[in-house]
């Protein structure tokens, strides 16, 4: 087999294989008119759309124009060269399995402390994971008999979070960060991780000498747990069952 035959070249699909058609919309900071449309086509060309056509342009006030552009993408993708992303590193368990594993192997309730830290007041994420109500048809961690939940709510100071985690001897700390303006979610999380490192100077890693640090939020897709100093990041759409299963995987050893 030659290298050539191992390739699987794909193009975008409009309504015919290989037509390579795509659609984009954008705004340019120029007044509406024929010159603005030429500018939009120029941009489309530089984006690799050839030919391209402006199917809609609309003035948004005197100084801006909105465009919808269709065009043929000149770029090719070799699908054979796209790696399959790694799947979940832990097994998904039912609440009964989670309770069973904690009871049998830990021999006590697993203690979780949750909060939104910094000035972030959006408790939607942490509540979806912790509140009995849960998320996506799954009950939250409060519903698990063998998990003891302390939900500290919104805008919790890092110092208070550390103190509470120590006071209740937390196995895991869950922090939710929704607000991303000026990368606040990154700064807040790093600050939190540093505070736990300082408060538990002899710890080896999450679950060994300090609580497991878990952060969740919709905009952590560009960083790794080690960038932040935490043990695990959960993204948009994470369900309570996934978090519970991960806690068992990471903390309840065989």
């Amino acid at each position: 087999m030659t290298v050539e035959t191992m390739k699987q070249i794909i193009r975008p699909y409009g309504d015919t294989t290989g037509d390579a058609m795509i659609q984009v919309s954008f705004t340019l900071p120029v007044p509406h008119g024929p010159r603005a449309e030429l500018a939009a086509l120029r941009l489309a060309g530089k984006m690799g759309l050839d030919p391209a056509s402006v199917v809609h342009s609309k003035a948004m006030g005197p100084d801006f124009t909105f465009f919808i552009v269709y065009g043929k993408a000149t770029h090719l993708i070799d699908y054979a060269g796209i790696e399959v992303p790694e799947g979940r590193e832990f097994e998904l368990l039912t609440p009964a399995q989670v309770n069973g594993a904690i009871k049998a192997r830990l021999g006590r309730r697993l203690v979780v402390v949750g909060a939104c830290i910094g000035t972030d007041a959006h408790t939607v994420g942490i509540d979806a994971i912790l509140n009995v109500k849960g998320f996506a048809g799954e009950k939250g961690l409060e519903y698990y008999r063998e998990i003891e939940v302390h939900n500290l709510g919104a805008q919790v100071a890092v110092g208070d979070l550390v103190a509470r985690a120590k006071a209740v001897n937390a196995d895991a700390v869950l922090v939710s960060q929704v607000v991303t303006q000026k990368s606040a979610h990154i700064h807040n999380t790093k600050q939190m991780a540093a505070a736990f490192t300082e408060a538990y100077p002899t710890s080896l890693t999450g679950g060994l000498g300090r609580p497991l640090l878990i952060v969740g939020g919709p905009r952590f897709d560009t960083v790794t747990p080690s960038d932040l100093g935490v043990d695990r990041i959960f993204g948009r759409g994470t369900t309570p069952g996934e978090v519970a299963s991960y806690l068992v995987h990471a903390l309840v050893r065989e």
């Binding site: 919309s25 954008f26 705004t27 909105f66």
Partner: peptide, 10 residues
Amino acid sequence: HTPWLSDRDL
């Protein structure tokens, strides 16, 4: 994201 100019217009 926080609304763009075009989001608000649409």
